[in-house]
Design a protein around this nucleic acid. Structure first.
Length: 598
RNA sequence: GGAUCCAUAGCUCAGCUGGAUAGAGCAACAGCCUUCUAAGCUGUAGGUCCCAGGUUCGAAUCCUGGUGGAUUCACCA
């Protein structure tokens, strides 16, 4: 199906050439936009940029072009207001467009081909010492949704997760378990493994704090106390044991990581996200260190080893600071690990683009990562792309895990489901459903509300989350969209003898709300392209909200099943069905599910 | 102090990459269920698009300089 805006663009170009006797027209001069609601027409040509060619007043230029264009088969008529030429597209065009959409295999989606760009998306990337919280929810939903959107735009997608499963923080929780765990497993205590481990980490931190205070009371400096508290020394010893491959340490580590992964899996499943491949830092952290060590031998002038053996990258010529890559004791820092992981990834997938979905507090880190890799001679470093998103803040301010000021992901999901249950039961529309079916509806509505709430805002902006007020079920929300879908399905169930064949003769009957709805459905494909281009689920969220509003308008204005003209009735049923399918596909791009009843 | 990001209605957010009189939802107020699911629809009210310059026929949008907020610049991850 041809794109109407492209068709118009070409026609306008032809018109300018013909009317003003010009050979070439710069395509940037031709500006087409949707006509604003308060004016008549579907598309508007802004003629101001064309005045240089026409050498006439705006109104006259618009008038002359309109006269020429009205002979074009898809243009019904035109009107001119100031420097704006409003074009009305024929009803027949929109009618045919709807028919093509219905016939299309999977309208809006571009099937990926083998040679389409390959994009690796890393998201989630949790630490194994904390359960997932609200910030991770934004990360996971963004990562998953962007992957779906890029897939729909015809890209080959690999979703990967990188688990930070080594380092001093892991040793802290291991030590805590040895000291205070009493040999208990999550199963013994009947709690999720990630929550159990998270609580051990918190325990460590509070005991560690006590030791620090005590040392300071005994007259030590703060810094000395932090470095020499017995718990810290023991944790560091444990890290050395781990690095040395001590069997007992490794076993404990594997057991506790197993608890955490089991817990994460439950949360991931609840959120509906998944991965094609999971990387563990414990497998890749040495890689980066070797790369850095090898590179020092190359004698890059920006890479230097100091007297204490630590290795530094001097990035001041890129207007950044000096960055440490290897500590004086030879161990690697976060940056070093990411260097190794990136190289590994490139070997694994030979990607055209690599997207890191990581919060904006790491903007600097990813800027440095790309520069260092480029300087090390990896040309593909320019394909690394940091999708930086803003933090989720609470009314009290930033979330702080150490102070317990977090919104736990599992807890939040449970609460949302409970709210959805209450709301549903009050409305009492699910009486004929079994318990299991009803629970499925509650779950879909709850997660739909959460996902839509988070994804509708531009990723790069920070967002405010008020647990009491944020999750609404009315207005511009996930449930509003789901509800529109449910009403359509309910209607379609009642529609009997529906035919898929539409009478070709009836397009003149179409009214404004029907045309508006067709046009919004028609925009789905270009919206996917735009969302993919901008890596922005918010674009899809806004689109589907507009679509449902458009449908509600239509639903309000036009009887469907009660329409007496059979051609028109069939048309409206078909239009409703196509709209429902589009809602389902669009919400699917956000990771939302739509219930059949609610 | 340097760098990056943000600032739009009382609140939460859109604003199609420079176009017409800046839009939604929530909250407030007034209506619409004997009618395809009222988690819906219609209306009223609500704005110095942070400020000041600049570019342009035209700026919430681009540039410069301020102001306010967030993040970051660790031998933390």
């Amino acid at each position: 199906m041809l794109n109407i805006e492209e068709l118009l663009h070409n026609q306008i170009s032809t018109a300018i050439k013909a009317v003003y006797n010009i050979k070439e027209v710069n395509s940037k001069m031709i500006q087409i936009q949707r006509t604003r609601k308060e004016f008549d027409g579907d598309f508007t040509v802004v003629v101001f940029p064309l005045l240089r060619l026409s050498k006439k007043r705006p109104e006259q230029t618009a008038e002359e072009l309109g006269e020429y264009l009205k002979n074009y088969e898809h243009i019904e008529n035109y009107n001119v207001i100031k420097g704006f030429l409003n074009l009305t597209i024929t009803k027949q065009f929109w009618f045919n467009a709807l028919q093509s959409i219905q016939k299309a295999e999977n309208f809006g989606f571009t099937p990926p081909t083998a040679d389409a760009p390959k994009i690796v998306i890393e998201y989630s990337s949790p630490n194994t010492n904390k359960p997932l919280h609200l910030g991770h929810i934004r990360n996971n939903l963004l990562g998953y949704s962007i992957a779906e959107i890029l897939k729909a735009a015809g890209k080959n997608i690999v979703k990967v997760n990188l688990i930070n499963d080594r380092g001093i923080h892991i040793c802290k929780t291991m030590l805590a378990w040895e000291k205070w765990g009493d040999g208990k497993t999550p199963k013994d205590l009947n709690i999720k493994g990630d929550h159990y481990v998270g609580s051990l980490y918190v325990r460590f931190e509070s005991e560690y704090k006590k030791e620090i205070s005590k040392l300071i009371e005994e007259g030590n400096e703060k810094e000395f106390a932090q470095k020499n508290a017995p718990l810290m020394l023991q944790a560091q010893e444990m890290l050395r044991q781990w690095e040395a491959g001590n069997k007992e340490t490794r076993q404990l580590w594997e057991m506790m990581n197993g608890w955490v992964y089991a817990g994460f899996d439950v949360t991931y499943k609840a959120l509906g996200v998944n991965f094609d491949k999971v990387y563990y830092e414990s497998n890749t952290y040495k890689k980066g260190r070797n790369v850095v060590l090898d590179s020092v031998a190359h004698r890059y002038n920006w890479l230097t080893q100091r007297a204490d053996k630590s290795i530094w990258a001097d990035l001041t010529s890129d207007r950044l600071d000096e960055k440490i890559l290897l500590r004086s004791d030879g161990t690697s820092v976060y940056m070093t690990q990411d260097i190794g992981t990136a190289i590994e990834r490139y070997k694994d997938f030979d990607f055209d683009e690599h997207i890191y979905v990581v919060g904006n507090e790491q903007d600097y880190h990813f800027k440095v990562l790309a520069i260092v890799l480029k300087r090390l001679g990896y040309d593909w470093a320019k394909r690394l792309n940091h999708l930086s998103y803003g933090m989720v803040e609470l009314p009290q301010g930033k979330m702080k895990s150490r102070e317990g000021k977090v919104v736990d992901a599992d807890h939040l999901i449970e609460e949302m489901i409970e709210t959805a249950r209450k709301t549903s039961l009050e409305l009492g529309k699910l009486d004929e459903l079994s318990n299991d079916q009803a629970n499925e509806v509650f779950r879909k509505v709850a997660l739909g509300a959460l996902k839509y709430f988070i994804l509708r805002v531009d990723p790069k902006r920070k967002m405010l989350f008020n647990p009491e007020e944020s999750i609404d079920f009315n207005g511009n929300t996930g449930p509003f969209i789901q509800y529109t879908y449910v009403r359509i399905l309910s209607m379609l169930r009642k529609a009997e003898n529906e035919t898929n064949e539409l009478s070709v003769e009836m397009f003149n009957l179409l009214n404004k709300s029907e045309l508006g709805l067709i046009q919004q459905i028609y925009r789905f494909r270009e919206t996917i392209a735009e969302a993919a281009e901008n890596h922005s689920p918010a674009t899809i969220a806004n689109y589907v909200y507009e679509l449902t509003k458009e449908y509600n308008q239509f639903y309000h204005d036009c009887p469907v099943l009660k329409e007496e003209n059979a051609d028109l009735r069939n048309f409206r049923i078909a239009l409703s069905r196509t709209c429902a399918q589009t809602i389902k596909k669009a919400t699917g791009l956000l990771g939302m599910e739509v219930p059949e009843k609610m």
